[in-house]
């Protein structure tokens, strides 16, 4: 087998094993209230830790060495506000991407002067 094929199997296999092991082998209901609360908070905490601070680097094209902070921060603001108004996943993402594009265009226009 080629290096690539083995690597593809490794990536898929490792990722699946991580996901399947707990859910397949742990079938007890946990009675402990602390543990139940802990699991209630986990999704929000994981998503928050993934979002901040990485979101401010997210509009930088790959390979670009100088980060595009301004478009990312303004777009994240729009996302936060529209999420606060409970606009739903798709609209929140759409408005933020539009904002990022608008900011990038304005910046590009200003640089060209």
């Amino acid at each position: 087998m080629s290096y690539l094929v083995i690597c593809l199997i490794i990536m898929a296999g490792t990722t699946y094993l991580i996901r399947v092991a707990p859910i397949a082998f742990f079938q007890k209901k946990i009675e402990n209230l602390w543990v139940q609360d802990f699991f209630y908070y986990i999704p929000f905490c994981v998503l928050a830790a993934m979002t901040f601070p990485d979101v401010i680097y997210s509009t930088t094209p790959s390979g670009d060495l100088s980060p595009h902070f301004l478009s990312a921060i303004l777009a994240a603001q729009v996302a936060l506000i529209s999420a606060w108004k409970e606009k739903g996943l798709v609209l929140v993402a759409f408005l933020a991407v539009l904002t990022a594009i608008a900011v990038e265009l304005v910046l590009k226009y200003m640089v060209s002067f």
């Binding site: 928050a48 930088t60 094209p61 990312a72 529209s82 929140v92 993402a93 991407v97």
Partner: peptide
């Protein structure tokens, strides 16, 4: 263009934000 590609990168994080903020409210 690379600029548009870059801007689309924020969509993932915005989905995260859209999931957590309404619960935080």
């Amino acid at each position: 263009s690379p600029m548009l590609q870059g801007c689309m990168g924020i969509a993932l994080y915005c989905m995260f934000i859209a999931i957590i903020i309404p619960e935080a409210k």
